[in-house]
Design a protein around this nucleic acid. Structure first.
Lengths: 144, 144
DNA sequence: CTATCTGCAAACCGTTTGCAGCGTT
DNA sequence: AACGCTGCAAACGGTTTGCAGATAG
């Protein structure tokens, strides 16, 4: 089972790609990695501003853009919003999101391939990508 | 103008829900039902305006809102856009979308339940909903 | 005749861009 | 010293709202 990425790791990847290490980026990366649910740019900005006075919302957008381009972060689509960001899925991970608290977990779902093969054959499509996401109540929210 | 039987059905459902039948709504419903891909509000507006002079973009938005509330239409999420609308899926239908021409087809995928049961057991979540969508090239676009 | 529906214009809000100065390397 | 990065303010574009007149029932 893959370990969660660390902030140090991400900062290093950013530097290896020619980007500079700055206080703003450190803050943003830390917030994303320590939160167990997808966040909107504005949320990241508000949390970040408490830690680093003067942080700009624009920097949040630009940092997310870079992180997404490097495949470290992904945009999460939900029925009510599609502007939230989360650590990106790796390999065959898929998302499981709590509709009450927003908590996001990944699960492994690599056995979708046989279903996809069947659909490809029936439809005549050459399938190149898939989205699979589950919604529900996490154990904590379910108790209530 | 040839009558689309499904359009008649939708208009009737709208009326049964207390909404009035109007020229604008007829036009919008017809466009959605005769198109084999998801459309943005602005696209519906532009096509509709050619048929019905004076149609307003606001009416498109308000009609889509009502059709979505009645479960006749659904918002389609794609990597690049999540403001497109399509006839809603029924039962266990899932979407298969051509990334080249946008053509959307439904396929049946009701055998996801065993995977979902397994995820529920492992994660402790009570799963209430799922999104499953495939992307690829349709037979026509694949030839090129 | 009444309540809904309409289109227009303006407001709204999340996101992007231009810019001059700052900070990393 | 060079060039990327920053925050601010303004621009932008899709969506929503307020309104007075039109229209379905």
């Amino acid at each position: 089972m893959p370990e969660n990425p660390s902030a140090v790791e991400w900062i290093k990847l950013l530097q290896d790609s020619g980007y500079r290490q700055t206080a703003s980026r450190n803050t943003i990366v830390e917030i994303i990695l320590e939160t167990d649910r997808a966040l909107e740019p504005l949320e990241i900005f508000e949390i970040g501003r408490k830690r680093q006075k003067g942080l700009g919302l624009v920097t949040v957008y630009r940092t997310l853009e870079r992180l997404e381009a490097l495949g470290l972060v992904q945009r999460v689509h939900q029925p009510g919003a599609c502007n939230m960001y989360l650590r990106a899925a790796r390999g065959h991970e898929h998302l499981l999101i709590c509709t009450a608290c927003g908590k996001a977990e990944f699960f492994d779902g690599d056995d979708l391939s046989c279903l996809m093969d069947r659909v490809a054959e029936k439809s005549g499509y050459q399938i190149t990508d898939h989205w699979f996401q589950l919604f529900g109540l996490c154990a904590d929210c379910n108790k209530k």
